[in-house]
Each structure stands twice: as C-alpha cells, then as structure tokens.
Amino acid sequence: MYNKINIKAFGMIAEKLGNTALEWDACEDTDGLRKELEARFPDLKEMKYSIAINKTLIVGNVRLPEQAEVALLPPFSGG
C-alpha cells in the first residue's frame, strides 16, 4: 500500500485549507479520511462538501483505491 495520497481541494474548501493540494497519509476509506481531515481542519466540520475519487463523486463510504485522485468539492456554483 502506498503511504501517501494526493488530495485536491477547490473553492471554499481550498480557501479554508489554505491550499489547493495536500499530501496526506493514506486512509482505508473516505469516512476515515473525512474524520482525519476534520480533526486537522475543524472548519471543515461546518462545511458541506462532496468527495470525488478519480473524478467520480462517491456516495456513502468508499474504500480508497491505491494512488486514487481524491478531491474535496464544495457545492457547485457554476453558471
């Protein structure tokens, strides 16, 4: 198992994290990842965001595949 994952952050989430990219210790699944992220960035707890793995939005808790491209997406506001 790879011991790091790369996380992309967008919009208001990137602003709260102070970065558009994060290197993070690998997690088993997305629930675990949310928990760890929210521990380090408490502001995230108050925010609504979705997670995409390899450019697809996930629903519920999903196991993180190796070398996954993980993205934190606040509510979309295009147009």
Partner: peptide, 27 residues
C-alpha cells in the same frame, strides 16, 4: 442543459465585492 450544467459541473464562482472582500456564490 443549463439546469444540469449548474447542478453537476464542478465549477465554483467567487463573487468579488467592491469592498475587496469576497463571498462564494451559491446556486
């Protein structure tokens, strides 16, 4: 198309204010 673009595309609008502040657009 317009409805789906606004709801489903991962795009974000940062509204720049005349006060130099900003707020995040909400659809």
């Amino acid at each position: 198309l317009v409805e789906r673009i606004k709801a489903e595309l991962p795009v974000w609008g940062k509204e720049i204010l005349d006060s130099d502040g900003h707020v995040w657009k909400v659809n």
